[in-house]
Design a protein around this nucleic acid. Sequence first.
DNA 1: AAGGTATACAACCGCTTCACG
DNA 2: TCGTGAAGCGGTTGTATACCT
Length: 324
Amino acid sequence: MGRAPCCDKANVKKGPWSPEEDATLKAYIEEHGTGGNWIALPHKIGLKRCGKSCRLRWLNYLRPNIKHGSFSEEEDNIICSLYISIGSRWSIIAAQLPGRTDNDIKNYWNTRLKKKLLGRRKGPHSRRSSDDQESNKDGDNQGLSSAAIERLQLHMQLQGLKSPFSFYNHPALWPKVHLPLGESSLLQDQCNNTNTSIADPAMAQQFPSTSIDPPSRHAIDDFAPTQMVPSQDEEQGGMENSANGFMQDEIDELLFGRQGGQEEEVQFSELDCLKEMDYERNSLNWWANNDSDVRSSSNSWDSDSFLPPLDQIFQEYVMGYHVQ
DNA sequence: AAGGTATACAACCGCTTCACG
DNA sequence: TCGTGAAGCGGTTGTATACCT
């Protein structure tokens, strides 16, 4: 027995909103507010709409100060940077772009920005979703979703795939080589030189005002300390659960590489690339582990056992060739 | 001009999270 | 502490329009 539906589906109108419906909803909310109950709202004002539909219409379209129209380059940069760092958490990304809704950003990403940044990765077949889905089915990507691969690709690009000094241009250092953790002197040199900025000058120019490294570095944080393993604080006293405070902390941390309100405890202040190799490998593992497809297929995951598929993904999707 | 295809965006669906009794 | 229902969220679908052949 499933959960009761939120409204009477048979008596609810679906599809595009008419100007009259828009006007009715807008006028009521502007005068009375939502009343804290979206489910009851349509009945109050005589709309044959589901409460959820009213909420969505208001938030995504009717609300004041909603921006419609094209995105600026600055907005592109922010979206790109945050997507690499935190994935498809559109509400958090939208919180950084005043006037933009999560739905708007999600649509913009899926239809335009993703293509702009990634381009077409495979041969002459360029038809959208269906072909992409098919290619995913055909390819043996070992369970990684296209979203994870996209983030992987973007990350690689922004980390400076084209740089002659890049990690990714040194085949000996690619993931197949199982270096012990911490063995990263070459990368340390490289990072000392680049100061962890975007390595490729062309990319740096393309993303002039966006710091890519700190947020993407925090993908690891997302993976291990805060989600997989309770922190000491959590174990001892429980974590802060105030929605606003938590959100702001999370955004601060994602954007600026610090934990909001915790001046004395900056988890990732050491942007010296000392463990760049570990970081890269952990990032790859993080994407894999946090991918819903992977999660659903395997509850217990061991980082070492995941390395071969990642090698394959790295070679096939990022470096652009297949290795037996 | 017509039909097919691609694109953009609005809206829906269902799962998760949260608040409250 | 637990159950319930509303809100929030992200993935997906539907549809109008633009573009191409």
